[in-house]
Every structure is written in structure tokens, then in C-alpha cells.
Design a protein around this nucleic acid. Structure first.
Length: 316
DNA sequence: TGCATTTGACCAAG
DNA sequence: CTTGGTCAAATGCA
């Protein structure tokens, strides 16, 4: 990838900071919830959130310093292909793809269709038969597209040969949970921001029925900088772990209930399941088995991250 | 009744 | 013209 412009790097720095903040938010939230038994059911989701955020930071880091960090044993791991925007239709939103494999159909880890969940709230807005594809492609956008102008969308397509494998393409980052740190011009906007904070906090306390879980590889910059991110992520799971019944009381079953268990797919937490994540360049198509270890190694780079102090006031 | 989903139409890009 | 992506009215569901 080209050496990014300073603004690009600045954006990525912002991304890193924001992600780090989300991560700590989740950690603290977990600590809070652990004191109430009723909140136990939220823990798996929370773990997924934390680990996924971790992954996000990982990827962001990898793309942030591509020239400085030595390549991982010659593999394409975490070397992301940045492309110019593909079509004007897609504008300049960042794009990246992932593959999600469902380990087993049984076990109640129901994955009825392509709605493998990542913790965000998606709303389906279209479906299209794709040429040469056996299954139609589903089009989803963030539920808060209207309310918060969240530009995130995703496309989900089931693999032809392997019905348990889903190709998920993400466009744009979620901004629905982000504070608009850009200079707030008017007092109205500031008040609005405060309201959003309150809403977020309330949602968090209400048991993760939130629009804010930072899951998946929501790792691209949130600027209009025009570069795309292409990578593949394959998560393989051997254990269905806990069924989805712990979320069955949720009011939005279509997404959260049957699929929330899938949000752990990207979790690296060893407590919940056995899983692995592979990253490789989509162009090369090389499936380096070394990718796993190197990725895991990179994961450790994420341990120390400077957190913003304003977080505490957030919760007080 | 107010949501989300479905589904055919519409539109832009190649 | 073909194809992929989005829109929006119709439909379904709690």
C-alpha cells in the first residue's frame, strides 16, 4: 500500500484511539456487569465485542504502519490490499470482506441465513440474485442509518459449495456509536452529543441492547479518504458453545437472538470456543497457514493502548 | 400499529 | 444490454 498521506495517518490514528476507547468501554462494562447475575447472559456478547475490537485495532495497526513493520515470515498476513474505490456507486467508503464459516449446523447456534451477526444492528434493504451464484446476495444497512446517518452497509452471500460459509462484505464504518469529535459548531449539536452519550450509556446498562457494539473488523478509517480495504477473514469453530437461549428474551430476535452467538466467531477468547482467524491478501489467494500464528502474535501488540481519560467521566 | 422484511422496479456503471 | 446496488411499496410479524 502506498505510504498514506498525513491526513490519512491522522485519520487512522483517530481510529485507533476510538477503537481503544471502545475496548476499554467494553472492559469496564464487563466489570460492571459481573456484579449482577442477571447480566451474565451478556458476557458472551461482550467478550465478542472486546475481542473483535481488538481485532479491529490489529488490522488498523497493520495498515497503519505497513512499511515499518517487517512482513510476517513472508506471508501475506495482515498485508491489506488497498484499492481505489471500485465504482462511483460506492463512493469512497472503505470496503473489506470477511468469510464466516459456521462450524456446525446443529447445537442450536442457529444461523438460518446470511445474517451471521456481528453485534451491529442491520436492516435488510435488498436482495439480489447474483450471476453465477447459487444463493442470492442480501443487502443490509445499519439500522441507525437514518437516525444517526450511519453509513455502514454490508452484503452477505452464502457460498455456493459450502452453505455454511458466508461471504460478508462491509462498506463503511459505523458511526452510530461514535462521538462526533469534530468541532461541534452549535450548542444544539453539543446537546445532541450529550444526549447520545446518555443514550449510549443507558443502552449499555440496559443489557447490551445497543446499537453500539463495536464488533467485526470495523477497522477502517472513517474519513472520506479513498482507499479500500480488501481482506478475508475466515473463522472456524468447532464448538457451538452456548446456545442462543441466553439471548432469547431479546426483543429483536431476527438478528440478535439466533445469531448473536455467532458474534463470538471472531472472538479469540479461549474460554468460549476454539476458533481461528485467517487473514490474507485477497488477490494472492494464498492461504497461508502461518497466518494464524502471526496474527495471534500481532494480537499481543494490542495490549497496551493509551486510553482517553475522559472515559471515566463518561461513566460517572 | 409500528416496526422490519420482502420483492419487483429503477438506476448507474461497465 | 447486462449486472449489481438501491429504492420503496407491499407484506409480514409481534
Amino acid at each position: 500500500m502506498e505510504k498514506g498521506s498525513s491526513s490519512e495517518q491522522q485519520q487512522q490514528g483517530l481510529l485507533l484511539a476510538e477503537l481503544a476507547r471502545i475496548q476499554q468501554l467494553g472492559k469496564q462494562m464487563e466489570a460492571e456487569l459481573s456484579q449482577h447475575s442477571a447480566a451474565r447472559s451478556c458476557k458472551p456478547l461482550l467478550r465478542g465485542m472486546l475481542s473483535s475490537v481488538r481485532n479491529s485495532i490489529l488490522i488498523a495497526k497493520a495498515s497503519n504502519e505497513p512499511d515499518d513493520s517487517p512482513p510476517d515470515a513472508g506471508s501475506e498476513t495482515c498485508k491489506f490490499a488497498f484499492r481505489d474505490q471500485m465504482s462511483k456507486k460506492r463512493k469512497t467508503l472503505p470496503k473489506w470482506t470477511s468469510e464466516v464459516r459456521v462450524g456446525s449446523a446443529g447445537g442450536g447456534a442457529g444461523l438460518a441465513d446470511g445474517t451471521a451477526e456481528d453485534g451491529y444492528n442491520w436492516r435488510k434493504y435488498g436482495q439480489k440474485d447474483i450471476l453465477g451464484a447459487k444463493y442470492p446476495r442480501g443487502y443490509y444497512r445499519c439500522t441507525h442509518r437514518m437516525t444517526r446517518s450511519c453509513p455502514a452497509t454490508k452484503q452477505v452471500q452464502r457460498s455456493d459449495e459450502d452453505p455454511l460459509l458466508f461471504h460478508v462484505t462491509y462498506h463503511g464504518n459505523h458511526t452510530c456509536f461514535q462521538r462526533q469529535q469534530r468541532q461541534k459548531e452549535t450548542k444544539y449539536e453539543q446537546e445532541e452529543e450529550e444526549e447520545e452519550k446518555q443514550e449510549l450509556l443507558l443502552n449499555l446498562q440496559a443489557g447490551l441492547r445497543v446499537d453500539t457494539e463495536g464488533l467485526e473488523f470495523d477497522s477502517r478509517e472513517q474519513s472520506p479518504v479513498s482507499f479500500s480495504f480488501g481482506s478475508k477473514v475466515e473463522a472456524i469453530f468447532s464448538s457451538p458453545s452456548t446456545p442462543d437461549n441466553c439471548f432469547s428474551s431479546r426483543p429483536s430476535p431476527s438478528f440478535l437472538s439466533p445469531t448473536t452467538s455467532n458474534s463470538t466467531y471472531f472472538s479469540l477468547s479461549p474460554h468460549d470456543f476454539e476458533g481461528e482467524i485467517k487473514l490474507w491478501s485477497p488477490e494472492s489467494g494464498a492461504t497461508n497457514s502461518a497466518a494464524d500464528s502471526s496474527l495471534a502474535g500481532m494480537d499481543f501488540m494490542l495490549q497496551e493502548l493509551e486510553f482517553e481519560p475522559d472515559f471515566s467521566s463518561f461513566f460517572s
